[in-house]
Simulated scan of single mutants.
Amino acid sequence: MTEKTFKTLDDFLGTHFIYTYDNGWEYEWYAKNDHTVDYRIHGGMVAGRWVKDQEANINLLTEGIYKVAWTEPTGTDVALDFVPNEKKLNGTIFFPKWVQDHPEITVKYQNDFIPLMEESREKYETYPKMVVPEFAHITYIGDAGQNNEDVISEAPYPELPDDIRNGKYFDENYHRINK
């Protein structure tokens, strides 16, 4: 795990995180650049879902504290507040009713199924939204550099977060070891 002090937006961009919400849901998230994030979901109702090149608003709120927010093609809204110097995060996920009722539709590599996500968003009910506000503990911080396509590059598997935390997934240049 990288030990660095976060102060500026540049310190945050290119950083790879693994965190676990207080409800037990585990996520992996990468600040790919100043407007794009990639992520994999390892626990919770949409475990197995992964996404690349999600457009997001990424902002420095004050020294070392960051706000990231986006809307997915599913209609899910996400707002994350990162406090990496304290290894904390607060996230709120606003799941449309259809995702709560049919999470299996979203559990895939989203990028290959955008039309299905959009169709489902129109076909099924949106409200009431399922709001999930949770604190999380950051269990891994890696300095992957910006626009590193190796960070989130395959579907999640059960041991993946531990493989990353134990140094078995990336080499010294932050590239996947076993492609």
Rank of each mutant, 00 (worst) to 15 (best):
D81Q: 13
N33K: 11
N173E: 14
G91A: 15
V37L: 05
N57Q: 14
E55Q: 14
P115F: 03
A136Q: 13
P84K: 06
F94W: 13
W29N: 02
H35T: 10
W98G: 04
Y66R: 13
A136K: 09
V151D: 00
E149A: 09
F94H: 13
I41G: 01
A144S: 08
T71S: 13
N90P: 05
I138S: 14
F12N: 02
G142S: 08
T8M: 10
I93V: 15
V131W: 08
P103N: 00
Y66Q: 07
A69Q: 13
T106Q: 12
F135I: 04
E63H: 07
L116R: 05
S153Q: 07
Y124N: 08
Y124F: 15
T74M: 09
T74K: 07
E26F: 01
N178T: 10
I65L: 12
M1H: 10
N111I: 03
H137S: 13
W29F: 15
G43R: 01
K7I: 11
G14Q: 08
Y21I: 04
Y127T: 09
D81A: 11
F82G: 07
I41E: 02
T106N: 03
E28V: 03
W25L: 01
I141R: 15
R49G: 01
L13P: 03
I177N: 09
F6Y: 06
E104A: 09
Y19C: 09
H102K: 12
D10A: 13
D34H: 10
G91D: 13
P96W: 08
K88L: 11
E3V: 07
P73G: 06
T139L: 12
V37C: 05
Q110Y: 06
N85C: 09
G44T: 00
N85M: 04
Q100I: 01
R176V: 07
M130E: 14
A136I: 11
E159L: 11
D53L: 14
R176G: 05
K108F: 03
L13Q: 02
L89G: 14
Y19S: 12
V151Q: 08
K97H: 06
P156V: 02
E122I: 00
T62K: 09
T76H: 04
F6E: 00
D34F: 00
V51C: 10
Y127S: 08
G24A: 02
E118W: 08
F95M: 12
D38E: 12
H137D: 15
A56G: 06
